[in-house]
Write a protein that binds this DNA or RNA. Sequence first.
DNA 1: CGGCAAATTTGCGCGGCCCGCAAATTGAGG
DNA 2: CCTCAATTTGCGGGCCGCGCAAATTTGCCG
Lengths: 227, 227
Amino acid sequence: MAETPFSVQPVGAPGEQHAGLRERKKVATRKALGVAAMRLAIDRGLENVLVEDIAEAAGVSARTFNNYFGSKYEAICALGFDRAIRIGTALLERPADEPLWDAIMAAVMSEYGSADRALGEEWMAGIRMVTGTPALRGEYLKVQAMTQSSLADAIAVRAQLGPGAAMFPRVLAAAVTAALQAALEAWLHADPPTALAPVIRRSLRQLADGMMQVLPPAPAPQAGDSG
Amino acid sequence: MAETPFSVQPVGAPGEQHAGLRERKKVATRKALGVAAMRLAIDRGLENVLVEDIAEAAGVSARTFNNYFGSKYEAICALGFDRAIRIGTALLERPADEPLWDAIMAAVMSEYGSADRALGEEWMAGIRMVTGTPALRGEYLKVQAMTQSSLADAIAVRAQLGPGAAMFPRVLAAAVTAALQAALEAWLHADPPTALAPVIRRSLRQLADGMMQVLPPAPAPQAGDSG
DNA sequence: CGGCAAATTTGCGCGGCCCGCAAATTGAGG
DNA sequence: CCTCAATTTGCGGGCCGCGCAAATTTGCCG
């Protein structure tokens, strides 16, 4: 099987190298289904793809497809879902003494930094379909929600805060996700097509500049108030 | 038919009083379907409710149900969806000279401020089901997304910003929505049950305190750059 | 290697959903 | 009353999601 430029790791722990043939096959099947679903939907049109087609393209039965995904929409967004999880783990793996904003920037760019020119056409068509097709909206929102919660969890681990700031990781993660989303849309509609990475970098830096004043490097819960 | 404590206005403009029997009937049917779906799902269990049941409870045919909603999940979340829209319009209707944070607080409380003890059991059961049932997750995320974009649009209208801050309304709306969501969850899991309004107020005020430093009351585009 | 237990895949079948279509019904306006 | 447009309704069909049980594959131990 040819190497694809998408995720290799499953949803689980990031460090697991070897987990037996069973696990590796399951991961491979999941990825094959996700890639097949995405590819078929892109060049055939979403509503002209049956679950049966995706299963066939991945070399499994239609029944097995539904052992992995609850719908074809879920399969199409599976790659994005896994990426959302990797962003969080990437943030956790940044050096602990790195400033939070730099770490967030690095974690995000680890997923979006080189996806730009490498895949080109197909990547862009995929993003366009996933964000622009009404039938996929629910699933795409799940991807965004996962990005948010994954980021929030990692932020909470990095910067342990006073009890009055329990809400902070979620709010910051929501802001970062919103900025990332805005960057993606700006890139999609850029009339002279441009590179994605700088757009995201600018977007996140702008957010960071605006919020830096709120975030002193030391964990100082100013409005300390029990929840 | 008895007065229900939910929305009366449709999705459309807020001021329209009279629009002919046709329009009023459509609005009534939509609301009847939404309420019936919610009520049936609450006390019978989501998977024990067929589209047919909802339609019957609302006094229309099953086929008509699908003229209004694309799925029973959509019907169940329709009330929340309409509320999301009303929050944005409420923000637009606040006095123009009111500080932004006060206006946001007022707009949010106009929807969540009195919903607490008025409906009691049913309201809480509904929130619990909508936020806790996996099958409803996609639809609920659409409600959140609508809250976000509705707020963002209103914020953009109120505080006209320099071109360097085009992202600001969306980020602020995302932060507000995240804080609101956190408040709802805290309220849901409060062991001695408590009133909802104060929880939301505290949550939004905490967010405002943290962000106030970013938002000087005067629109001062720091990166002064025209057109 | 041989063989057993657990996990996974697969075919089958059913109930339900979603939607296009055309006929019937209902509101709007002369 | 009569006409037109909007809405509702029944019908039919394709597809989906899933429970079930048989068949296959994998892990493991002697």
